[in-house]
Simulated assay, not measured.
Amino acid sequence: MTSRKQTGSDWDVRVFAQMLEKLPEHVPVSDAMEAASPQEKDRWWSSQREHVVAWFRPQATRGSGAFVRLEPNLSAAKTYQRFSCAEGLISLAEAVGVDP
């Protein structure tokens, strides 16, 4: 595994998942959003960081269950574009220092 960019401005999804693991586990705005409107059922994560990392990491495989794919996806950019959880996206922005 390399820590370099894959092509252009895209990162290898495995490297990106490792970088995400180093971000703060809890950040105020997304934690408040989650508390105000918690997922009613099937919530398995303890933080949005855990949720986001778990979305990125298995993209490099063929997946499982409802998320089976013909070919592994190594593009962090493509994976990010497919992630549709507002709390997770806000937690990423907040963790890297985007002004609320």
Rank of each mutant, 00 (worst) to 15 (best):
M1I: 13
T2Y: 11
R4Q: 06
Q6L: 15
Q6S: 14
D12V: 08
D12T: 01
F16L: 07
F16C: 13
F16P: 04
F16S: 06
A17K: 00
M19I: 10
L20I: 08
E21P: 02
E25F: 04
H26I: 14
H26A: 09
V27F: 09
P28I: 00
S30D: 00
S30A: 14
S30G: 05
D31H: 11
D31Q: 02
A35I: 08
A36K: 04
S37T: 01
P38V: 02
P38K: 01
E40Y: 12
E40T: 12
E40P: 14
K41R: 13
K41E: 15
R43V: 07
R43G: 05
E50L: 06
H51E: 04
A54Q: 10
A54I: 00
A54S: 12
Q59F: 14
A60L: 07
A60M: 13
G63E: 13
G65T: 02
A66C: 03
F67Q: 04
R69A: 11
R69N: 04
L70V: 06
P72I: 05
L74G: 08
S75E: 08
A76V: 01
A77C: 14
K78Y: 15
Y80L: 14
R82F: 12
F83K: 06
C85G: 07
E87G: 04
G88A: 04
I90D: 00
S91H: 12
A93L: 11
E94S: 00
E94F: 06
V98R: 02
